[in-house]
Design a protein around this nucleic acid. Structure first.
Length: 848
RNA sequence: GCGAAAGUGGCGAAACUGGUAGACGCACUAGACUUAGGAUCUAGCGCCUUCGGGUGUGUGGGUUCGAAUCCCACCUUUCGCACCA
């Protein structure tokens, strides 16, 4: 049975054609045109500023479709905002220092600068062929002396404020990268970059005092409403602030006191033993005269054999030993045994803890294993705990018992009272501990910004005078040296004179972590070639904080924490008037193939250029955006791209078939299409199409920003195109204007997503200026409202019938319609109606 | 172990504050046009069905007239934290 719709006539029965869609020539034409007319050049004095920023990339030669997703999403947003009338700042640059270039130098005997420049060129070509545009006049490249001059300047400002300092410390050393790493760059004891083992070395290194900013970095997260919660949580966890009390326990038969850190001073009366970390420096002196000494030493050796990774992650069974010594409880003066156990870590707090088995899970496990006493000091609200029947630690809130004058108090109050008492007795103090460590920024590698310091034998470390910046990287260097910066071997670089006493002195040979470069680049885009200042404060204050920052979740704590820190430092220096650099953070998902992240080594990379050749950049853009929600990871499907291409061909064919018609209408009604509709009455089919057009405008506009829900925006456009294919009425005078309105709107809605095709069609209709200089379509609310609605009728909550009724009926009228429906009558079948629920304009539910 | 997010057809996914589950696309099926088509157009497409309907959003409960959506428990996956005192 052929399907013959009443008023819709399928285009295949009439004048369908199969227009060729010459994407190749269209795309290169518009890519050149946009460059020529500098479409993305922003007016820095624009009145409606919008700063859209992509995380600046390390210049890599081989980009795959997964990278494309990132830049394409940013590009869509930029083009959309332009059409919405914003002055959009969309710059791009390169995080161009870093190890891959230096490793390439070692391996292939190519200079890092050459290698980097080649990659930058390559990457720009790739971005261009995706149709992704930037204000390239603002490009910043971090390995350029005109940029790193200011990275060095920033270092010196930090040095002057005491925020950059050198110290000897246990630091992470990546064997493969042959350099030290910051804590943030070590994940599960492996190098975040190359995944090889990291070992500890005791070295003299430069640090940034990020710990001074720990509180501000936590507190200001509250102001970042438009950041994903999980990124904020990760930062909070990373900083790891915990507020507590330091309590001194005098050691029995000694003048010394042991200090412990606890967040639960309320449990002080429940302490039944104290525990030292096996690395605690006092162990030897405390036990050497005890009979336990040799046993203790054996125990320490055993612990040393344990896997440090497992030990700090709690995977090992708890082991311990009694020292033979006692400490004195600061409030009760009781004698308390002093133990050593593998579950206490030396690098957090004081390396000693007070053990309260009744109210701490770990202490409970240990006390149970070693048969140590348990003393309950907090009672839960309803039951009553006893030390003999307790089968797990009670760590919740409750009321104090066995705690002298604190008895009867809620434990939170007791915390405060006990801390106060300890302070007044001189046996304690409040303290805040952080997990965050200072940021180690020295790198023993060549390809980075030299640390601008000079070491003089008589003056110590002296900063390079600002007028001597930049300290340039020497060009001729032997890269092979491992374990020490290659700069150590460059005599001409190394030897200089002390800026203070003029005596011969030596330059610092380490370079800076590349994360320093990327901590401030977003400020430089406003005045990229300024040689007088790090940036133009007035412009920066006008354009920042960044309105939308798009990047990967992998920077949740690295780059994003450092950039926030450096921004605060720059604020403190007085150069900017904001403390948080990025208002809205958007973390996009990856494209995965065969369940894994695309990578050369896995051989699952999808090459964008082949697809551009075969289907065009617009097809690739459309498909990438259509795949799924932008914040989620999506699986690449080779067949999916066909559907995207098919859709664009349908749009193209529709437009080309009707081109003369559209041109004719626009010739007479260029600016006032609406007038045509004013005095005429439309058929219901015409109305439906107009309604669809306006609903589509509404849907797409709502999807673009801030949701960036491009997948649903595209599906709305697809629906409209499907309807337009079925809309073909030769004899209807109104067909032209309605169709023209539809196509004009459609092309504008699609423009940010498939810019080349849209621009080409736009021009073919006689517009001389770019579609991106035109305004985003608006919808009329009235036209999106139906005059007839489909009323859903349920019986007992289950769908039983649907009928068409006029819009705007009262509840009573809706009920009447529902009860008259024959299907419903047979359902109800004379049963008594208990209730009728009506959802206006939608649904009637009859309860029987 | 703790915390967060997610779980919907063969597949990618839609579904705004609870109100028609599966829009849109892929794959598949049928038809049309074709010398042909991996082109194009039209239609069908969760599962079961005795063609009336029944059933269905990880599992099991609950709240509600009504649950993919809210609550409780559990399972799976991903991510983050993990003996931090």
């Amino acid at each position: 049975m052929p399907h013959t719709p009443l008023c819709f006539v399928g285009r295949s029965f009439t004048n369908m054609s199969n227009q060729e869609y010459p994407f190749g020539s269209i795309e290169s034409k518009w890519q050149k045109q946009w460059q020529k007319e500098k479409l993305f050049q922003v007016n820095p004095n624009g009145e409606n500023p919008y700063y859209c920023l992509m995380m600046f990339p390390y210049p890599s030669a081989a980009l795959h479709v997964g990278h494309g997703r990132n830049y394409i999403m940013g590009d869509v947003l930029v083009r959309y905002k332009m059409m919405k009338g914003f002055d959009v700042l969309s710059p791009m640059g390169f995080d161009a220092f870093g190890l891959p270039a230096e490793n390439a130098a070692i391996k292939n005997n190519i200079h890092p600068m050459t290698y980097t420049q080649q990659n930058i060129k390559h990457m720009k070509d790739q971005l261009l062929s995706w149709g992704v545009g930037y204000d390239w006049d603002r490009e910043v490249v971090s390995c350029d002396p005109s940029y790193y001059k200011w990275t060095q300047w920033l270092f010196i400002q930090m040095y002057k404020k005491g925020l950059a300092f050198k110290k000897k410390a246990e630091v992470n050393w990546c064997i493969s990268c042959a350099t030290v790493l910051a804590n943030e760059q070590v994940v599960d004891k492996k190098c975040e970059r190359c995944d090889s083992d990291v070992e500890l070395k005791n070295l003299d290194q430069w640090f940034f005092k990020i710990t001074d900013y720990a509180d501000r970095l936590i507190n200001d997260l509250d102001h970042l409403e438009h950041w994903p919660e999980r990124v904020k949580t990760m930062q909070v966890n990373w900083i790891g602030r915990s507020k507590g009390t330091c309590i001194d326990f005098k050691i029995d038969d000694s003048e010394k006191s042991l200090s412990v850190f606890t967040t639960r001073p309320d449990t002080l009366y429940g302490v039944t033993y104290l525990v030292l970390s096996p690395e605690h420096p006092w162990i030897n002196s405390l036990t050497e005269k005890e009979s336990t000494h040799s046993e203790v030493m054996d125990f320490l050796k055993d612990v040393q054999k344990e896997d440090p990774e497992k030990r700090s992650s709690g995977d090992l069974p708890k082991k311990g030993i009694f020292t033979g010594r006692y400490v004195i409880h600061p409030l009760t003066s009781e004698k308390i045994p002093l133990w050593i156990a593998n579950y206490v870590l030396m690098d957090y707090g004081t390396g000693a803890v007070m053990a309260v088995p009744a109210h701490d899970t770990r202490d409970f496990a240990f006390a149970s294993a070693y048969d140590l006493p348990i003393k309950v000091v907090i009672q839960p609200p309803n039951t009553s705990l006893s030390s003999t029947t307790l089968d797990e630690a009670y760590i919740e809130e409750g009321v104090m018992v066995n705690s002298e004058d604190c008895d009867g108090l809620p434990n939170k109050k007791a915390s405060k009272q006990i801390t106060k008492k300890l302070i007044s007795l001189g046996k304690g103090s409040t303290q805040i501990n952080y997990r965050l460590r200072d940021w180690l920024i020295s790198r023993q590698r060549y390809w980075g910004a030299p640390i601008p310091m000079i070491k003089c034998d008589s003056c110590g470390y002296v900063p390079v005078p600002e007028e001597d910046l930049p300290v340039r990287l020497p060009e001729t260097v032997a890269f092979k040296g491992k374990g020490e910066s290659p700069l150590a071997k460059v005599e001409s670089f190394l030897h200089t004179s002390c800026p203070q006493c003029q005596k011969p002195a030596k330059r610092e040979i380490d370079t800076m972590d590349t994360f320093v470069d990327s901590s401030w680049y977003f400020l430089r885009y406003l005045s990229p070639s300024n040689d007088e200042k790090i940036f133009d404060s007035e412009l920066v204050n006008k354009w920042l904080p960044v309105d939308k920052y798009v990047g990967g979740i992998e920077h949740a704590i690295l780059h994003l924490l450092y950039a926030r820190f450096i921004t605060k430092v720059i604020y403190d220096i007085g150069l900017i008037d904001f403390q948080e650099p990025f208002n809205h953070l958007f973390t996009q998902g990856m494209i995965v193939k065969d369940g894994a992240k695309m990578s050369k080594s896995k051989g699952n990379v999808v090459n964008p250029n082949l697809l551009i050749q075969k289907y065009g950049a617009d097809t690739q853009r459309l498909y990438i955006l259509f795949m799924g929600p932008p914040e989620r990871d999506v699986e690449w499907n080779d067949d999916g791209i066909l559907g995207a291409h098919r859709f664009l061909k349908r749009v193209w064919t529709l437009a080309k078939d009707e081109e003369p018609l559209i041109q004719k209408i626009l010739k007479t009604h260029r600016n006032a299409l609406d007038d045509i509709f004013e005095d005429i009455s439309l058929t219901s089919t015409d109305k439906k199409i107009r309604k669809k057009v306006h609903q589509t405008i509404q849907k797409v506009s709502q999807s673009m920003d801030p949701k960036m829900s491009f997948n649903t925006a595209i599906s709305a456009c697809m629906e409209l195109v499907n309807d337009l294919y079925l809309y073909d009425q030769k004899d209807n005078k109104l067909r032209g204007p309605i169709f023209t309105e539809a196509m004009l709107s459609l092309i504008k809605l699609l423009a940010p997503i498939v810019p080349h095709l849209s621009e080409e069609l736009w021009q073919s209709w006689g517009y001389n200026e770019s579609v991106f200089k035109s305004s985003w379509p608006t919808f009329s609310k009235d036209l999106t409202i139906d005059d007839e609605i489909e009323l859903v009728i349920q019986v007992n909550g289950k769908l039983k019938s649907k009928i068409m009724v006029p819009a705007g009926l009262s509840d009573k009228e809706l009920e009447e319609f529902a009860l008259q429906d024959s299907r419903i009558i047979s359902y109800i079948n004379d049963k008594p109606i208990r209730r009728v629920i009506i959802v206006k304009g939608k649904l009637v539910n009859i309860v029987i």
